[in-house]
Write a protein that binds this DNA or RNA. Structure first.
Lengths: 412, 412
DNA sequence: CTTCATTTTGTGGAAATCCACAAAACTAAT
DNA sequence: ATTAGTTTTGTGGATTTCCACAAAATGAAG
């Protein structure tokens, strides 16, 4: 073969041209992605037989389910650990036909991928060698792209911090910046904070970034790092049930971080979901509030991520303050505490769990491992001793809050 | 009859002597009470046949049920409006035998009563005339007693105000004063405030004082007047269910004020129930808080009198403050409001009532006059639209509070 | 007026809750 | 050890709640 020596020597104006060149040589459709599976370039080809490729080109990124599937089959980990081309068998569930992939390296790091589809023909051993060379040749082109992106990235970072700290408040100004920096906008957004056990290294940052770039559950607008916090401005896809989407996203983020990069112990939260950009700072603060409350009341807030779901914990700080001033006392609680102390009973815990289970006798009994009748006896006792009407929400709530506050104070 | 001219001319050392003198003349047991039915004096008489008299002497005041009964039969109103002696038939339910009573007057005001029991004999017309004279003669003696009491009263008032405003805080000092002024002490106490529609005139003050002196539901320690507020330090009788007793007292106080003196529209409250005197100021402030909340949230707090029962309204001021700073928003509420607005539905009201009825579907449906299934449909809708879990107390409470706050803000 | 989506009401049966009563277990004293 | 008081568990049955499904009513938009 004539081209064997240096088939990619010439200078290419664009990566598109480069993709076409590979495609020519190998006689198959070529797709080039960056490290986050965003489409960088693809060869012109009249071939609609591979749905995965089509979808990738249309949305300018690899569909999430395809990525997930490639992770599960071990394809991506393999590509990330070797410079050799890798043949991938058809994965029909996600519309992926037979293909060969090779990673593009810069020093010790993968900065992109080249995909060659084996639609018409199966690649030979020589072809794979050629693909490997193509990957090497692509390096500089892809790098340039990164450089440009990085420059932009710096300005974006600065802008994001201004938003988070409330240094830009005029909605118009914010919008202009969004447009200027070509950040997509969305009707609804919220600020997410992921707090890691340790400071976030650039490695981890890349991994997080990878997951964010490849997720499609949520639209990522901006993100930055603050010591051990990864801060993210993101938008739910639908406006109907945004909360649910945000929660799902958080759950799947944690799963992926754990499964793919073995990083656990991430405290996640998000603030209020708002429509206008002035509220970015607020949403950020709220996300931090959630984290702070998760720290103070870990058990109660374990399954809470959104500021909305924080419920009454939203103003617990305020109440703690008031309690410290001695202005919040509850004689019902005092009596119950005294009784518990004296008789070694568990009235307070009982009430707490009862409240947490929405006043459902059966569930509470199960949670406490006691007979339902035992529970109802205790409740009767609580009502008597504390002189509290257990059908009066008002009093129940008050008692509950006071119990929580007392517990917190006792442990601090 | 020889004594007819001036049977009570001589000087009597004490009212006891005076009572014995009347008893001698009329040949029947005599009891003298002040305007509040406290025992002032009684004739020595070996007669246990009249339980009402015996009880009065033992406890140094007329039993409350006797007073109630006398009011119901119209006896006391009659005595308060006429200087003539009045014959009262046996009221066996309260152990009251046949007797004659006459009121003691000073100017236009009744300052006491003389009771003559017709145990051995029925009094003649002449006897009644004599009794009337006795009442006139008793006036000065009784007045002296009042004067003495009034002097003490002034010092007591000053002391009470010091307590209410926190100008005496040392428990020892407070106790000394209690002892010195011969105010009874009690293991538990609370400050009550009765707020009248207008400033309290001395007439009304007397009427209130009358009711307080005659009540036995609660032990009155101190009271004073502040414009339209009647402020009372009182102690529940039992330590087991003090709250219940305080509530009963308030209810019966209102009833009596209305039935006996035709004064309605009294806003009543009481603060926390405490054991040590340092908390008098606090209890007073709490009672005022209750009144203020009753003003702000009349419907919700209509049946609330004690600070304990205020429940979450205890810190509504704090939350209102926070809300004003724009730090409390609730997107669930916002969505529900928007929906209600657009579709002319009642989701918010529905939720509110549902919460107030302890999440009981049937009761709520009755209260709203809708079919239970309608309610459950609406609840499902609320959960969807507001993205709120109706089995999560936390979220429910938060929404409820936000609704209340929003309502309050909207109406102010 | 019609149409479509939403809301309200009705029905029935499985599941659960509630309550009274009683026996058993446990505890803290004498 | 006995006893009295409190707490826990068990049983059974009347009542209520919950849910799915369907029919009817309402109401806004074309």
């Amino acid at each position: 073969m004539k081209y064997q020596d240096d088939p990619f020597k010439g200078n290419f104006d664009s990566l598109e041209e480069f993709a076409d060149r590979i495609s020519d040589l190998l006689q198959c459709p070529i797709t080039i992605e960056d490290a986050n599976h965003r489409l960088i370039a693809y060869s012109a080809h009249d071939d609609y037989t591979d749905p995965a490729r089509t979808a990738t080109i249309i949305s300018r990124r690899v569909p999430e389910k395809v990525i997930n599937s490639l992770w599960k089959k071990g394809v991506i980990p393999a590509l990330l650990s070797s410079q050799e081309p890798l043949r991938i068998e058809t994965i029909s569930e996600v519309g992926l036909g037979n293909r060969v992939a090779v990673s593009i390296w810069k020093n010790q790091e993968v900065i992109g991928f080249i995909w060659a589809l084996e639609t018409d023909r199966t690649l030979s051993k020589d072809d794979l060698e050629l693909l490997k060379k193509a990957a090497k040749a692509a390096k500089n082109k892809v790098l340039q792209l990164y450089m440009r992106r990085n420059k932009r990235e710096e300005r974006v970072q600065e802008f994001f911090w201004k938003l988070l700290t409330g240094h830009i408040t005029a909605n118009e100004e914010i919008k202009e910046n969004f447009d200027f920096l070509q950040i997509p906008t969305a009707p609804l957004f919220s600020v997410f904070v992921f707090r890691f056990a340790n400071d976030i290294t650039s490695d981890i940052e890349k991994q997080i970034s990878y997951i964010l770039q490849t997720t499609q559950q949520i639209q990522v607008l901006l993100y930055t790092v603050d010591r051990s916090d990864f801060i993210l401005l993101a938008a739910p896809k639908s406006t109907r049930q945004p909360l649910a989407e945000c929660n799902q996203f958080i759950a799947s983020f944690a799963t992926k971080m754990k499964e793919r990069f073995h990083i656990a112990n991430i405290q996640s939260s998000f603030g209020g979901i708002y429509e206008t950009f002035e509220y970015i700072e607020k949403s950020y603060k709220e996300a931090l509030t959630v984290l702070s409350m998760k720290e103070k009341f870990p058990a109660q807030t374990a399954s809470i991520y959104g500021y909305q779901q924080l419920g009454i914990y939203q103003f617990f700080d305020l109440l703690l303050e008031k309690k410290r001033q001695g202005e919040l006392t509850n004689s019902a609680l005092a009596k119950l505490q005294a009784y518990d102390e004296k008789h070694h009973t568990n009235l307070i815990e009982t009430f707490e769990v009862f409240f947490d289970h929405d006043s459902n006798v059966n569930e509470t009994a199960k949670a406490l491992n006691i007979h339902p009748n035992t529970l109802s006896y205790r409740l009767k006792r609580i009502a008597e001793i504390g002189e509290i009407d257990l059908h009066d929400m008002n009093q129940k709530v008050k008692l509950y809050i006071d119990i929580k506050l007392a517990k917190y104070e006792a442990s601090h």
